[in-house]
Amino acid sequence: MSKPQIALVTGASRGAGKGIALGLAEKGMTVYVTGRSTEVGSAKGWDGATLPGTVLETAEEITKAGGKGIAVVCDHADDAQVAALFEQIKEEQGRLDILVNNAAYIHPQLIEPKPFYEKGLDAQFILDVGLRSAYVASWHAAKIMAEQKSGLIVFTSSFGASCYMHGAAYGAQKAGLDKFAHDMAVDLEDVNVQTLSIWMGPLVTERAIIAAEVHPEQYTEFMATAETPEFIGRIVYAVANDDKASEISGHTVISAEIAKDRYNISDREGKFPPSYREMLGSPNPPNPAKVY
């Protein structure tokens, strides 16, 4: 696989997307980042507090970190805006080496310990911006990557694909992303494009820090060993540079495990984050059967 140069990380105004983009920036990549936030104040934490970060600020930090940041204001619920995004990348760069599908609708009641029918019906919007949007972005990216015969499409997933986590809509979205990686790998195998779904562990993000304050009984212990989002970006870069990445294409992997066992990538203070496989479940292994 040739050295990756151009990446796109969706949903990168803050949180996981921002950190992943910064992890790629450390390697000198040009990173396109999308988001809707152009002014601080549009996103709120679980306690109602204003969250920091805009897509424009993320692009600036990417450049400061050693890469080249390019912000594109994009609503991933709008297919026309997404199509224009990929046209822009193709016109400006002529290629795309990494797509990280991270954009997702975060419902304000997501972490409330209530059954799904007591939460607002709009919680299911994560199946639009989160699942459907990842399909649309991957469809556009695959066309570029198939033509150049190289590339990596990543889905940011979680243990919620296996265990009960945040309710039915969240779990279905994560399970769907894993299946996207599995099935898209079959279609992309002959054009040397890899796919991967990554179960990220608890992450040190703006929302997570507030969650630990709002629900300390659920999150305080997890946060003590939480992963940085930049850690996920370094894993993505390692996979994109892995000459044997086809071995894991279509798989769903646990971030802590692939980082330690395959790439020897550590996180904060040189430590390896724990895997929560025994507590929260295991990814499904790839199924070799094909039915057309």
Rank of each mutant, 00 (worst) to 15 (best):
L121G: 02
D122I: 04
D122C: 04
A123E: 15
Q124P: 00
Q124W: 15
F125S: 11
L127M: 15
L127K: 07
D128R: 07
V129Q: 12
G130D: 13
G130C: 04
R132S: 06
S133D: 08
A134V: 03
A134T: 08
S138D: 04
W139I: 02
A141N: 07
A142N: 02
A142Q: 02
I144D: 01
E147M: 04
E147P: 00
Q148G: 01
K149N: 14
K149I: 03
S150D: 05
G151V: 01
L152F: 09
L152S: 08
I153E: 10
I153G: 09
I153R: 05
I153T: 10
V154G: 11
F155D: 12
T156W: 03
S158K: 09
F159P: 00
S162Q: 14
C163Y: 06
Y164D: 10
Y164K: 00
Y164P: 06
M165Y: 12
H166N: 14
H166F: 14
G167K: 02
G167H: 03
A168L: 08
A168R: 00
A168S: 14
A169L: 02
A169W: 13
A172T: 02
Q173Y: 07
G176R: 08
G176I: 06
D178N: 15
A181E: 08
H182Q: 15
D183K: 03
D183G: 03
M184S: 02
M184H: 05
M184F: 13
A185M: 07
A185P: 09
L188H: 06
L188S: 05
E189I: 00
E189G: 09
D190S: 12
D190L: 07
V191P: 11
N192Y: 11
N192M: 04
